[in-house]
Design a protein around this nucleic acid. Structure first.
Length: 919
RNA sequence: GAGCCGUUAGCUCAGUUGGUUAGAGCGCUACCUUGACAUGGUAGAGGUCACAGGUUCGAAUCCUGUACGGCUCACCA
């Protein structure tokens, strides 16, 4: 392989992704002997495109999958899409409209053909895009919720639930979307505060002509549907009104005045117009008082002339609002109009106000609610971060039956048939519920509705793995991969999907015989749940804090970012900010940082390659064998210590889903510890044949472990470098699947320490402290040089004043110091010339007396330094002279403070000496 | 109306069980194309940790309250 001077992510990424596919690396094989690790993808809409949210979500899933593969686990990451009933049908209908067609022209069958074509053409793009991101999904298992097998699972679930009494049909108030022309579940309604008007309208009392009552309403266009006026029974203001009637001012009719306790006496005039057809509360009142229901609207939100009157018939509901107000005003019935803010429910998909509407729908009474609560409350399923538990439990505590029927064609048609000509559809004799349908289909007609998309995706973890078909379940390895390991998703679908999947798992995978509804034991719950951990990602926002959306146009196209920065750069960038479970403000400079990090890794690898032939790098053991323990200096010990602690941090990071910690500790290790320091100091000793081999072996060790640890985050560049640097087992031949970085376990700090110990290497724990001191010294001297404009002058002479111990360190470290500081000589100071100097952990370092000295500036600098020291010394002394501190603080804290004080006082003394010398 | 979360450098964010002088990246200033890297190096400026109380020897961190921002839930017409 050629080691390009510049890293070109696009070529490398495309090449490796194809190679991995060819090697079938992503295939989940139930026969694999490792411990199972499985993830099912949150299925995106089949016609969707990749957004930054998907990038975040799927990068995390990929990281978890890849890490598990490295650990030798039997990994399955199962991809797929859902059919997105409303969204897709809307798109297809819009497309038809462009051709001057509508779905009724086509009929159900033709329409579905169209939709199918649409899906073939536009569908699955998102899954292809995920490949550019590096997603290691088992593509052979790609599932779509309308696949024949999956559909069978959805209908089986329906039939079983129906049999067990969880599903029923009823005429109820539901959320109606006048744009999509279907019922919606409560979860699909988004409440939005709206600036509107509160109109006060007068109604004449029938029994007292000329006398009026006043009613406030926000919806005058429903007045024609009023069938009563309600007051609170204990409202003392108008006891005389109960039992009387008023005249409806629009589409006039006499309606009764009734009393009901739900009326808020303090709102508006304290009276409510009751419109049972157009409001949930009103409907309930109507039920209690046996009021007629007058629906003034057509399903599409226009007014029905038969109920609303010819005058308003055909108008759109918003137009009708204006028209009714105008009419009321003309009649003198409009008393006043006030500005008013109220919450209005909007359809999630169509973004239009929903209408409460009475209609026949199918409802699901959720099964296994108690077990679903217990599973999360008792941490059988763990939520990360935990705080979502409360939200989840609160929803389940207040759960209402789920309206699962949709008046659409694109979806799973409800497996219910009604006897032709039968008037009573409540009569069981007239209803047939089954997968196959009735034996004499000519005598039956199937229910027209389809199921809510979520009523299919709630089966995702089991239905993608063969349920309910026994043979298929075995083939797909349901027993092996279920319960899945981790679910990675956004908290916005905790009710839509997460909670429902939990209930579905508990209901359909509990091992009980059909119809056995007795509560599940804890062990049964453990075996039934669909996943063990749920990781909730944050929601990606733009820099202004707005949710990223296509309509706002504020979401960058991930593919553009990949083209510009590489998939690795994008992945790393998003991981460095993403994972706290809070909202994320997306900042493209993070992606740039990710790209730069990859470049840095590439370049340090090139440096390694240019520094000398690699020895045998084909295993950790081989590399360690090239280290001569006798040659290890404090830099070697320090970097080994840093590597071991990095390995530990990464291991903990994975255990706790702390992806930012993982990203940041690798950044710090590679950039700050390895590149900025170890590689730089290496340059001073690589020419020494006795030290070279050990030094290169240490570099190889660091790079190898860094690549392994980094691989889940940036899979492409790490695989590329793995082969470039000959870390693979078969480095002398062609790459093979078995030698890929994907199957090499990085291990943790303990593993590394043990491997080192086996070669007689004990990391000297004091080395890191020593190197810290040296690094600090270097920084101080560089700063001193910079102050005298000598930053890039390598010919300066330096002199030191140090105690015996520090002097020895300086002498033994001299070559490296000269190189790193950029100096010609470093000798013990002779005489007492006044020179620019700085106090360091290794004593006082002086610049060449020949350097021009500005007494005034030097005095100012040292005085400032002294003041700073004095301030800290005073603080430390204060603490140490506080009896309460000495009595109560732990011993190590007190000792630390004493040590600090001693060090500071020494620094102060030395600084004072320099100042005195200046005169 | 209820619940949850957030407020740390100009910007985006870290900060584990309270413990030295609060960190990173980007941006900014100055210098530098030195042999892995200008997608880079070196040095630097920049923070009353939203505010007010409290607990403690010690608070960005724990408690209470306030302000602002966000999310979720809720049938006030």
């Amino acid at each position: 392989m050629i080691f390009e001077k510049k890293y070109q992510p696009t070529d490398v990424e495309n090449r490796w992704y194809q190679q991995w596919l060819d090697w079938k690396c992503f295939r989940g094989d139930p026969a694999h002997e490792g411990e199972a690790y499985s993830i099912v993808i949150p299925p995106p809409n089949v016609t969707g495109v990749l957004t930054m949210g998907h990038v975040l979500n799927n990068t995390i899933q990929d990281i978890l999958s890849r890490r598990a593969r490295q650990e030798g686990k039997n990994v399955l990451w199962l991809p797929g899409t859902d059919h997105a009933g409303i969204a897709t049908q809307t798109k297809v209908e819009r497309h038809l409209r462009d051709q001057k067609l509508n779905k009724y022209d086509l009929g159900r069958e033709k329409f579905l053909e169209h939709a199918q074509e649409w899906k073939e053409k536009h569908g699955g793009i998102i899954l292809k895009q995920l490949r550019s991101l590096g997603a290691s999904c088992d593509w052979e298992r790609t599932t779509q919720t309308l696949d024949p097998h999956y559909s069978k699972a959805v209908l089986t679930a329906f039939v079983q639930l129906h049999k067990d009494g969880f599903i029923y049909r009823g005429r109820r108030m539901c959320n109606w979307c006048p744009s999509s022309l279907t019922a919606l579940s409560d979860e699909e309604v988004i409440m939005k505060p709206q600036k509107s008007y509160l109109y006060t309208v007068r109604y004449e009392i029938v029994e007292e002509p000329g006398q009026y009552i006043q009613i406030s309403t926000t919806r005058p266009e429903t007045i024609m549907g009023d069938t009563a006026i309600a007051i609170h029974p204990e409202d003392e203001r108008w006891p005389q009104l109960q039992g009387k009637h008023v005249r409806r001012p629009l589409n006039p009719a006499e309606i009764p005045i009734i009393a009901d306790v739900v009326i808020e006496k303090d709102f508006g005039t304290g009276m409510l117009k009751v419109t049972p057809a157009h409001d949930k509360l009103d409907f309930e009142i109507g039920e209690r008082h046996n009021l007629p229901v007058i629906d003034c609207f057509h399903p599409d939100g226009t007014l029905n002339p038969e109920t609303a009157g010819e005058e308003f018939g055909g108008m759109d509901r918003f137009e009708a609002r204006k028209a009714t107000i105008k009419k009321l005003e003309e009649q003198g019935d409009l008393i006043k109009t006030e500005e008013h803010e109220n919450n209005v429910g909007f359809s999630e998909r169509a973004d239009v106000p929903i209408e409460p509407r009475l209609s026949d729908q199918w409802f699901l009474k959720y099964p296994r609610i108690e077990e679903a609560k217990q599973a999360v409350r008792d941490e059988i399923i763990k939520f990360h971060p935990q705080r979502w538990v409360k939200t989840y439990l609160h929803w389940l505590d207040n759960i209402k039956d789920w309206c699962i029927s949709r008046q659409l064609w694109w979806g799973h048609r409800i497996p219910v048939w009604y006897k032709k000509g039968a008037t009573d559809r409540e009569d069981p004799a007239n209803i047939h519920v089954s997968l196959e349908g009735p034996d004499d289909p000519e005598n039956w007609e199937q229910d027209e509705d389809v199921l809510d998309t979520w009523a299919s995706s709630w089966l995702w973890p089991i239905a993608t793995m063969g349920w309910p078909d026994k043979e298929l379940m075995e083939k797909e390895g349901l027993d092996t991969y279920y319960p899945t390991s981790t679910l990675v998703t956004g908290p916005d679908i905790i009710f839509f999907w997460v909670a429902r999947m939990i209930m579905a798992g508990l209901q359909f995978h509990n091992g009980r015989a059909d119809g056995d509804l007795a509560p599940l034991s804890k062990d049964e719950i453990k075996a039934s749940i669909p996943f063990k951990d749920v990781y909730f990602t944050g929601i990606i926002r733009d820099l202004k804090g707005r949710k990223m959306s296509k309509s706002l146009g504020n979401s960058p196209d991930p593919l553009d970012l990949i083209a510009e920065y590489g998939a690795d750069g994008l992945r790393y960038g998003i991981m460095s900010i993403a994972p706290t479970g809070l909202d994320i403000r997306f900042d493209e400079t993070r992606v740039e940082t990710g790209r730069n990090f990859c470049t840095k890794l590439w370049n340090v690898s090139r440096f390694r390659q240019m520094s000398g032939e690699s020895g045998d790098n084909s295993s950790l053991d081989k590399i360690l064998s090239r280290i001569d323990p006798a040659q290890l200096d404090s830099d070697d010990h320090a970097i080994l210590g840093q590597l071991a602690s990095t390995q530990d941090k990464i291991a903990h990071g994975f255990a706790d889903f702390q992806f930012n910690t993982i990203a940041q500790s690798l950044y710090a290790f590679i950039w700050n510890d390895l590149c900025d320091w170890y590689v730089e100091t290496s340059k001073a000793k690589l020419h020494d044949p006795t030290k070279k081999e050990t030094c290169l072996a240490i570099q190889d060790l660091c790079l190898r472990q860094a690549l392994l640890l980094l691989h889940p985050l940036t899979p492409f560049i790490t695989e590329e470098l793995w082969y470039h640097l000959h870390f693979s087992k078969d480095w002398q031949g062609e790459p093979t699947k078995g030698s890929s970085i994907q199957y090499e376990n990085p291990g943790d700090g303990e593993d590394l320490r043990a491997a080192l110990a086996a070669k007689g290497i004990q990391i000297n724990p004091a080395a890191q402290g020593q190197i810290e001191n040296i690094r600090e010294t270097v920084t101080l001297v560089r700063a001193l040089k910079a102050q005298f404009n000598l930053a890039n002058n390598n010919n300066v002479a330096l002199y030191y004043e140090a105690d015996a111990e520090s002097a020895q360190i300086i002498e033994s470290y001299k070559d490296k110091l000269l190189r790193i500081i950029g100096a010609k000589t470093l000798e013990p100071k002779q005489g007492d010339d006044t020179t620019p100097a700085t106090v360091t952990p290794l004593g006082t370092l002086h610049l060449d007396p020949g350097s021009a000295i500005d007494k005034e500036a030097e005095t100012a600098r040292l005085t400032k330094e002294l003041a700073k020291l004095d301030k800290i010394i005073a603080g430390t002394q204060g603490r140490l002279s506080n009896k309460a501190f000495l009595d109560k603080a732990p011993e190590n804290v007190i000792q630390g403070a004493q040590q600090q004080l001693a060090d500071l006082q020494k620094d102060r003394e030395d600084t004072q000496k320099l100042l005195d010398a200046l005169g």
